[in-house]
Design a protein around this nucleic acid. Structure first.
Lengths: 142, 142
DNA sequence: CTTGCAGTTTAGAACCATTCTACTTACGGT
DNA sequence: ACCGTAAGTAGAATGGTTCTAAACTGCAAG
């Protein structure tokens, strides 16, 4: 990811390197707040704007994505096509591999009927339910 | 919807009646701000909290849903199973009818593989692309 | 019809996430 | 080493949502 950052013509500042190190490979879909807090010890003077600027730059370079499920935006370093499974109870988000986000021809046909003229680019899915841990807790609670 | 409100054991206040009147059947997926502004002329003293409280009550009674696509939450009075098509350009959201939000057996099988233990309840889809109007504009712009 | 009270509304403050601003700093090409 | 400019900083500003404490009001029971 660092290599890609450089390749995208972005300057390699210590802050960016630290953010990327913290972010790349993180599957917890952290918020800006999360990343900011984790970097506090190393960069006590870092500003929120830097976290947002860097995440925006990564997104603009196609190196990361964003996800909105609650009040706060969650950032996602996984650039492979994938969907998300969200736990109704704890709110944790898991990645679900997908072959592709491109609409299937069946989806295109359906949209032609229900939303004529809409030009689909991608189809995202959110699976809602209970994650493994919370499913167990629910059983225990009864 | 008003009947359902009463049936859900909620008090019929003038504010709630006005909100429901404004909201029911609205396919624009309004934000709290939108509804608040539309009700200003009729209820100049109404508070934001009332709009949120009422929308929360409706959601709790299963009479409406919520959707998070940008900074602001959008509310959705359509309780039929459906997905959403979001325009990349103008941000407008259209409903796409769906037979059901229950996971297909294929989806359940896939999740068993990629997220073992996750207990799916519903599958929501977001179709991203350009709406009919914006598609036209894009063509015109070239 | 009156009463009581739990559920509602209100204004405004508080809170959180995000963006903006004006300024300083420092990466990286020459 | 120098310079231009991209990036970082602190803090204020903005926008959305929730909270609080006090006043009000449907509505069920008398």
């Amino acid at each position: 990811m660092l290599r890609d950052l450089k390749h995208a013509g972005l300057k390699m500042t210590p802050q960016r390197i630290a953010i990327v190190r913290q972010f790349a490979g993180d599957e917890s879909h952290p918020t800006a707040q999360d990343l900011f807090e984790r970097l506090q010890p190393e960069f006590p003077t870092m500003s929120f704007a830097t976290v947002y600027n860097t995440l925006d730059a990564l997104a603009a370079a196609g190196l990361s994505g964003m996800l909105r499920l609650g009040n706060a935006a969650r950032f996602d370093p996984n650039t492979d096509a994938h969907h998300h499974a969200v736990c109704d109870d704890c709110g944790n988000v898991h990645d679900i591999a997908a072959a592709s986000l491109s609409p299937t021809s069946a989806a295109v046909r359906k949209l032609r009927r229900t939303a004529p003229g809409f030009n689909v680019r991608a189809v995202e899915r959110v699976y809602r339910g209970l994650c493994a841990d919370c499913s167990k807790k629910m059983v225990a609670r009864v």
